[in-house]
């Protein structure tokens, strides 16, 4: 079965990004496909490569990047929500005249159409937020 996932709350303050990660890991282990995870609202903050959590804590961003690498999960960050919150990839940083970019490996920035497309192309859509 194809399961799409929407993460709509940021890391650390809320449990949503952790629950979503555990859920996706379990879905993949059960043989389901998780073609895409879409990050919206403050969920876009999961994608920052600049977070430095204490060493004895889980690294939420790295967990997700590893999932993308190992299982080919398409991690899409909403561009409109990301720009509001200062999340830019190299292309966007250049286009907007900003001196830095912060999107971690495995994540890509794209439009809300990717969320709708995920809803159309998957059998289930599961939302984690606050």
């Amino acid at each position: 079965m194809k399961i799409g996932v929407l993460v709509s709350e940021g890391p650390y303050t809320h449990e949503a990004a952790d629950t979503a990660y555990k859920f996706v890991t379990a879905a993949l282990a059960a043989g389901h496909e998780v073609p895409r995870v879409f990050f919206y609202h403050d969920g876009v903050n999961v994608a920052t490569r600049l977070s430095v959590p204490p060493q004895d804590e889980r690294n939420i961003q790295q967990n997700w990047s590893a999932l993308a690498k190992e299982h080919g999960v398409d991690l899409v960050v909403c561009i409109a929500a990301a720009q509001r919150r200062g999340m830019l990839d190299a292309n966007e940083a250049e286009r907007q005249g900003k001196d830095a970019h912060n999107i971690a490996e495995g994540f890509r920035i794209s439009g809300l159409g990717q969320l709708i497309e995920m809803g159309i192309q998957t059998d289930r859509l599961v939302t984690f937020g606050d």
Partner: peptide, 8 residues
């Protein structure tokens, strides 16, 4: 979490 997936 596996049970969660099954419910979905």
């Amino acid at each position: 979490y596996a049970g969660f997936v099954d419910l979905v």
